[in-house]
Amino acid sequence: MIIKQLAVPKSGDHSFQFRQDLYPRHQSIWHYHDEIELIHVIRGSGTVFIGDRIKGFQAGNTVMIPSHVPHYWLFDEDLPGEEDPIDCIVIHFLKDFGSSNFLKAPELSGVRTLLDRSTRGMFIEDAERLTERFKAVLSNTGLEKLFSLFSLLQRLPAEEPSYLISENYAILNQSDDQARMNNLMSYIRENYKHKIKLLDLAKVADMTENSFCRYFKQRTGKTPVQFINELRIAHACFQLRNKPMPLKEICYDSGFNNFVSFHKTFKSITGTTPTQFRE
């Protein structure tokens, strides 16, 4: 299976890449790239799949994804009815910025330490104070743009980021089945609110059930049931944060057949009950 390697477009005028996304058109594919990815969410919410972790995100969050770690961004379907449903600043850069000696300057020791520790990814929950720093990276030119990025990276450790990927996660060698994982992700995304049979997933992957289970656990670090349940709970968390729906309605809308199972799974994944989470 190849998890698609994406080539981030390069510019001869800059040592890193940057853009502002106002619509979720670049992210919904299971992929990896050579560059470190840094995303700041100004507007929008959803779920990010990264290595062996599934994590809900919302406005005010910042996420750093290490190089060569497969990931997939799933923005919530219930997007506001506006012309620009999301607003995300996206930055891609190589760890050494294309030069092995680039970060050896003493003044950049903090940036160097941050990047050395970033191999498990980072998640900053309350990062709204970083918005202006991200915007400066977009708007500045020449050396000021590069200095703005260094200033931003230097600031990240003070925001108390948490790790995303488990210590046991290992990046696997990629092989030659690019479509398989994306077909699976698309199928799960379209059907997680309904009952998904293991046999159906195995058919999508064109494998036997036993082979599929081994394959999926290798690629995601989770069993299919764990993966689907975490996606369902991420959806439930979105509903609890944003909609005054009764808990039982959220339970069924998230793909669970009974409230007891929903409550138990929710607490095991989030560490709290749905009621406590809403409060």
Rank of each mutant, 00 (worst) to 15 (best):
S45H: 10
S45T: 06
S45K: 11
S45N: 03
S45V: 02
G46P: 06
G46N: 07
G46I: 09
G46E: 02
G46M: 02
T47N: 04
V48M: 13
V48H: 07
V48R: 00
V48K: 01
V48P: 09
F49D: 07
F49W: 14
F49L: 13
I50V: 11
I50G: 01
I50L: 05
G51D: 01
G51T: 04
G51C: 12
D52R: 11
D52Y: 02
D52K: 13
D52E: 05
D52S: 05
R53V: 10
R53F: 10
I54D: 01
I54E: 04
K55N: 09
K55F: 10
G56S: 15
G56T: 15
F57W: 02
F57K: 03
F57Q: 11
F57M: 04
F57V: 12
Q58T: 15
Q58S: 14
Q58V: 02
Q58D: 08
Q58G: 13
Q58L: 14
A59M: 03
A59L: 04
A59E: 06
G60N: 07
G60P: 09
G60E: 03
N61C: 13
N61P: 14
N61T: 14
T62K: 00
T62H: 04
T62Q: 01
T62F: 00
V63A: 00
V63H: 01
V63W: 00
V63E: 00
V63Q: 05
V63G: 01
M64P: 04
M64I: 07
I65N: 02
I65V: 10
I65R: 03
I65G: 04
P66N: 07
P66M: 02
P66E: 04
P66Q: 05
P66A: 07
P66V: 01
S67E: 14
S67H: 10
S67D: 09
S67F: 06
H68S: 06
H68I: 05
H68W: 11
H68K: 15
H68C: 08
H68P: 00
V69N: 09
V69S: 03
V69W: 02
V69K: 03
V69P: 01
P70D: 10
H71K: 04
Y72T: 01
W73L: 13
W73G: 10
W73P: 03
W73R: 00
W73H: 03
W73D: 05
L74R: 12
L74E: 11
L74V: 07
L74C: 10
F75Y: 15
F75M: 10
F75W: 13
F75I: 11
F75T: 09
F75S: 15
D76N: 13
D76G: 12
E77A: 15
E77H: 12
E77W: 05
E77K: 14
E77M: 13
E77C: 14
E77N: 11
D78I: 08
D78V: 11
L79A: 15
L79P: 04
L79W: 06
L79I: 13
P80W: 07
P80A: 06
P80E: 12
G81F: 00
G81P: 08
G81E: 10
E82W: 06
E82C: 05
E83H: 12
E83T: 15
E83D: 09
E83R: 10
D84L: 14
D84V: 05
D84C: 13
D84T: 13
P85G: 05
P85K: 00
